[in-house]
C-alpha cells in the first residue's frame, strides 16, 4: 500500500470525474468520491507511477513553466515540419541517434519520451536503461553528447525538479 500514490491517483481521478460530469450536485460528488477511492485501492495499490513525485511549491511552479516551454517547442517544431512537407524537394536527412538521460523516475521518463515524440522532427524509437534511441528527421549531430544537448536537455532540466 503506497499511500502517496493512492492519494495522488484519487485527486486526479476525482478531478477527472468532475470534468466529465460538468455539474456539481451532491449525488455526483458523493458517487465520484466513492468510485475514485475504490479504483486506486484495487488497481493501483502496488504500482508506483506517482510515488516519486515531489509536492513542493517549486515543483508546481516548474510544472507550469514546463507546459509553456513544451507548447512553445510544439508550435515551433510544427512550423518546421510544415516547411518540409510543403517544399517540393522534400528536404529530409533522417537518421537514428542515441541520447542519454539522467532521469530515474518512470513517470518522468515517460513524460520525457512523450515530449520528444510530440515535438515533430524527433521521436523516441526505443528506450534502454539510460539511453534513448531517437529517430531524427534532420540529423545535425551524430555524437551522443551533442545530440543530448540538442534534444533532451531543454525538457530534462524541468522534469528533474518535478520528479526526483
Amino acid at each position: 500500500m503506497n499511500v502517496k500514490n493512492i492519494g495522488i491517483s484519487f485527486v486526479i481521478l476525482f478531478g477527472f470525474w468532475l470534468l466529465l460530469n460538468g455539474t456539481f450536485t451532491t449525488p455526483i460528488i458523493v458517487t465520484g468520491l466513492i468510485v475514485s477511492l475504490i479504483i486506486p485501492m484495487f488497481f493501483c495499490a502496488r504500482c508506483d507511477v506517482f510515488a516519486d513525485m515531489r509536492l513542493t511549491p517549486k515543483a508546481f511552479l516548474y510544472t507550469f513553466i514546463y507546459l509553456f516551454v513544451f507548447a512553445f517547442e510544439l508550435v515551433k517544431a510544427n512550423l518546421d515540419v510544415t516547411r518540409r512537407v510543403i517544399s517540393p524537394k522534400l528536404p529530409i536527412n533522417p537518421g537514428i541517434v542515441k541520447v542519454k538521460t539522467k532521469l530515474k523516475s518512470k513517470m518522468a521518463r515517460m513524460i520525457l519520451a512523450n515530449s520528444i515524440t510530440l515535438t515533430p522532427g524527433t521521436f523516441t524509437l526505443a528506450i534502454e536503461k539510460k539511453y534513448l534511441y531517437i529517430h531524427w528527421i534532420d540529423v545535425q549531430d551524430k555524437d551522443v553528447e551533442a545530440a543530448t544537448k540538442e534534444i533532451v536537455q531543454k525538457f530534462e532540466k524541468y522534469l528533474e525538479v518535478i520528479y526526483g
Binding site: C44, M107, R109, M110, N114, I127
Partner: peptide
C-alpha cells in the same frame, strides 16, 4: 517501459 507506465 513507456507502454507499461502509460498503461498504469
Amino acid at each position: 517501459e513507456i507502454l507499461v507506465t502509460a498503461s498504469r
